[in-house]
């Protein structure tokens, strides 16, 4: 423990919120600087830490674990683990209907995305054209490969000026409404975790992995 306290490297000084711990560390560090014998590790052959341009890994004598940081409890993880996978993993309980979604949309989205999701001023939410066309085609209906992304994105990022304010039910509802505007679910649709993940988006099969590899061929 003691030997890991940096003596001179001010920028890497541990920053402690608790003043007491901090003074303790400072005292330990001062002691270590003044009187500590060289750490046992220095008996190993010195490893020159040249300024490598390739990112260097760890030195050979690094421990398996340093033990810095704290364990995260399942509750702690759950607090931030908000992402939704394309198979629906991560979708919360709850549900919402197209009709409810229309009300959410008019209150929380319309001012930026327009009365029918096409007028702006910000991104179109409804495709009106071939998918290759930009921007009218490259919107939710014709371009997005997964409906789960719409839930994930709306919940994490929208409404842009008040993100994180919609309930999960409201997100299901407004997602249902935006999908309905794109002609992908009927007017009486109600979405929940199972029905949302089951939606097949028209563009799904169009997405292909990157085939650029460097070398002489231009792709």
């Amino acid at each position: 423990m003691k030997r890991q306290l940096p003596c001179l490297a001010a920028p890497r000084r541990p920053r402690c919120d608790a003043g007491i711990i901090h003074s303790l560390l400072v005292a330990l560090a001062a002691g270590a600087c003044a009187s500590e014998p060289p750490p046992a590790d220095s008996e190993r052959p010195a490893r020159t830490s040249e300024l490598s341009t390739d990112a260097p890994g760890l030195p050979g004598h690094a421990p398996e674990r340093f033990g810095f940081g704290a364990d995260a409890s399942p509750e702690r993880v759950a607090l931030w683990d908000i992402d939704i996978k394309p198979d629906g993993e991560g979708l919360p309980p709850g549900s919402g209907s197209v009709a409810d979604g229309r009300r959410v949309y008019e209150v929380s989205c319309l001012q930026c995305h327009g009365p029918t999701g096409t007028e702006g001023p910000n991104d179109r939410l409804v495709s009106a054209d071939e998918w290759e066309q930009w921007p009218p085609g490259r919107a939710v209906g014709m371009y997005w490969p997964y409906a789960t992304t719409l839930f994930d994105y709306t919940r994490r990022s929208m409404p842009q000026t008040t993100p994180g304010t919609l309930s999960d039910d409201d997100v299901y509802a407004v997602v249902a409404y935006v999908l309905h505007l794109n002609g992908l679910v009927p007017a009486d649709a109600v979405l929940d975790a199972a029905t949302l993940a089951a939606i097949e988006m028209p563009a799904r099969e169009r997405f292909v992995p990157d085939n650029r590899t460097g070398g002489p061929v231009v792709r």
């Binding site: 890497r12 541990p14 920053r15 810095f68 940081g69 364990d71 702690r76």
Partner: peptide, 11 residues
């Protein structure tokens, strides 16, 4: 699963 503060990362 772990949580790191900046002081941890800097170390």
């Amino acid at each position: 699963p772990m949580v790191f503060r900046m002081a941890d990362l800097r170390r």
